[in-house]
Amino acid sequence: MRCRDLLDAISDYVDGELDESLCADIEEHLKGCNPCRVEVDTVKKTVTLFKDHLPYEIPLAVQDRLHRVLRERWRKKRNSAR
């Protein structure tokens, strides 16, 4: 396997979507290729960084408004069903 082949498959590899034989080829290549190891490692870490962090909190006033609007809608619906 060449470095270019690995780069084409890197996303599927990181996502665990490749078949076993291709994974084995990649892992064999990674054993002897530090630049590709860095590629795989940094892409994996990039995905994890974004997945692990939830940056924005809903302002309290927005939360309150959301619950109020939904409750009003529910009351309306319940009353019209009667």
């Binding site: 270019r4 780069l7 084409d8």
Partner: peptide
Amino acid sequence: TEEGVPLP
């Protein structure tokens, strides 16, 4: 690369 993946 041939598949359009940017080279590092």
